[in-house]
Simulated scan of single mutants.
Amino acid sequence: MKLTIYYDGQFYVGIIEMVSGKTLKAYRYIFSAEPKDQEILDFINRDLLKHIEKHDQKGITIQNDLPKKVNPKRLQRMVSKEMKQANISTKAQEAIQEEYALRKKEKSRKNKHQQEELKRFKRELKIQKAKKKHKGR
């Protein structure tokens, strides 16, 4: 599990990347305007697992191209290179975009259904009003 925190111009955003087996799952958490270290630690210790359970998703399958046994010096170089990079992995961005797309589709379905119900209700009111006028009331 990896937590990357970056500033997106308005808020600090935490990207949680989880690799289990050959699937990568990425979650997004928005912190306040300027979170303190204690707030971040509280999130990690208390709310991280709840956030992951709440926003469960399929994940993206990945292929590990790295060999099983890695030279310690190479591993150290890789770690230092990763520490210098503050970017989020593109796979994590893909996972988050897929989640947004699914939510958007779900939301549009609900909105269409609500609009149809509203149209049907208004139509029935007009019909009832016309009947009342026809009866002379």
Rank of each mutant, 00 (worst) to 15 (best):
V79Q: 13
H55P: 01
I44F: 08
R46Y: 10
K73Y: 13
S32D: 06
E116G: 06
L75Y: 07
L66H: 05
A95C: 15
E106W: 03
H134C: 07
L24A: 10
G14I: 04
R120H: 12
I16L: 08
I40V: 15
S80E: 12
K126L: 12
T90Y: 09
T23F: 06
R28F: 00
K36Q: 08
K131T: 02
Y100L: 14
H51V: 03
G9K: 07
I96G: 09
G136K: 08
Q10D: 09
V13M: 06
K25Y: 00
E98N: 14
I5M: 05
K105L: 14
I88Q: 01
M1D: 05
K112S: 08
G136Q: 03
S89D: 11
I40S: 11
D37S: 15
K25Q: 10
E17D: 02
K133E: 14
Y12A: 06
S20A: 09
I88R: 03
A95S: 15
A95Q: 07
V70A: 02
G14T: 11
K131L: 11
L66N: 08
I96C: 10
N64R: 09
I40H: 09
N64G: 07
K81Y: 05
H134Q: 15
H134Y: 13
K69F: 07
Y100F: 11
Q10A: 06
D56P: 00
R77I: 11
K84A: 15
Q128A: 12
E99F: 14
R103Q: 15
I127G: 00
K91F: 07
N45V: 04
K54M: 05
K129G: 00
S80A: 08
K129D: 05
Q115I: 14
K131I: 11
E34R: 11
E82M: 13
P35N: 01
E94R: 05
N111E: 15
E53A: 08
L3C: 09
D65G: 07
N111I: 13
F11D: 11
K54D: 05
K135F: 08
F11W: 09
R77P: 00
K129P: 00
E106M: 04
Q93C: 07
K69Y: 03
L125V: 04
Q10N: 10
N71T: 02
Y6N: 10
I40N: 05
R109T: 02
R77D: 11
Q76V: 00
K54H: 13
S32P: 03
I44G: 02
G14N: 03
Y27M: 01
S89E: 10
Y12G: 04
E117T: 06
R103W: 05
S32Y: 00
K91C: 06
I88E: 05
E17C: 01
